[in-house]
Design a protein around this nucleic acid. Structure first.
Lengths: 212, 212
DNA sequence: GATAAGTTTGACCAATCGGTCAATTCTTCT
DNA sequence: AGAAGAATTGACCGATTGGTCAAACTTATC
């Protein structure tokens, strides 16, 4: 999180403060976006003086980049759960399940991503054009193979992935809207599991050949 | 847009400036959210001095509320395209189609909504808990009727609507991400129509009984 | 226990924020 | 033409912004 060059064992005190700042920054950036966030608010949520924040992270942008990099790493972890060796239904179910769990466990990360895209992706633009595009291309190849083998209905793989991303991300980014429609309470674990199962079922039914 | 009490015919000059401010505000709020937006930037995009902006809209919040109200009206228009008298497949296809067209024609409105939800919906919270919830409940009744009649597979209507909202909204909010994955260019009209057709096909296939 | 290094903090800075205001210009009406 | 009102604008205000800094305080090392 801090300098990757640190050689000496980090003191727990330092790690604690740095982590508190990091988590506070995540929540503030997720809520207000980069421009709408203030270092004062982040320091307040981290319960430290603002000047102390600048000791660990020299600028707001450096802090934002650290937070963003972490989000990308989490994304890459979930991406690996799409297994080409498995059956289409297995692979899709596992991937959607992983993305849904990600949305549930780390909605803040998803919201940071959403805010970054909304303002034109100045920081993760490179990632989108390189790593993400490579990932997408390789999975498109797999999906096309499945289609040719008759294991999937004919479709443009890209738009199918967009549907998966949209739906899973929705459960993180629009948690507030869902809560408002749920009597003001966030989805319970049971509700979330039901939603997840239904999303997987609907998507699979939507792309698997009849009688599968 | 201005005072609804205006009785005299509005001069086109006044309407023009007010509209310019309104459109500039939409684009800025969509990009940076409420907190991240500045009246200076809005005035700059409207190509007027900042003081002139405050002549038409006394505060940043008043301007934001005007913009937000307009977004809700657009939402309500699209909502009416869900026709209960039609076949499930017709009704769903028409609704998804309308939402997709909305995302294409007015991505900015969608992004304003998304930003508002991300910061906890302080302005449209009431709308969500009343109008939107009522709409959702009434449509859930219709969907449940279809399920009982065997015209739809068993599912929780709510999560199905979330899928529709998620997917259609994604084409507006994540336009930038899609463009990055599309050689830097936004989806062409042909690409968008293909995506729309596929979204409708996958969703229908996902919820209609086999052999329909 | 002294010295050095790392950490914490209030006070402060220039720039930008939302908003005001008086002076000016443009329109409208007679 | 000229008065009255509407619209436009540069200058300005106090509050907040991201960031700095020197002084004070801890902690590790000998």
């Amino acid at each position: 999180m801090a300098s990757e060059l640190t050689r000496t064992p980090r003191s727990t005190a330092r790690e604690g403060r740095e982590k508190a700042i990091f988590e506070a920054a995540r929540s503030v950036f997720a809520e207000f976006g980069y421009k709408g966030s203030t270092t004062a608010e982040i320091a307040k949520r981290a319960e430290i003086p603002k000047a102390n924040l600048h000791y660990y992270f020299p600028t707001k942008e450096a802090l934002y980049r650290a937070v963003t990099e972490d989000v990308l790493n989490t994304w890459l972890e979930a991406a690996s759960s799409f297994d080409e060796s498995a059956d289409p239904s297995e692979a899709i179910a596992a991937y959607v399940s992983a993305k849904m769990d990600m949305a549930r466990q780390d909605p803040i990360g998803s919201r940071i991503w959403a805010n970054e895209i909304l303002r034109g992706a100045p920081v993760i633009g490179d990632f989108l054009e390189t790593t993400l595009l490579d990932w997408l291309k390789s999975r498109e190849t797999i999906v096309r193979r499945w289609i040719k083998a008759g294991k999937l209905v004919a479709l443009e793989p890209r738009y199918f992935f967009y549907m998966i991303w949209a739906t899973t991300q929705h459960y993180a980014d629009f948690e507030g809207q869902m809560a408002a429609l749920n009597g003001g309470k966030p989805l319970s674990d049971a509700q979330f599991e039901a939603a997840k199962a239904q999303v997987i079922a609907t998507l699979l039914r939507g792309v698997l050949p009849s009688g599968t």
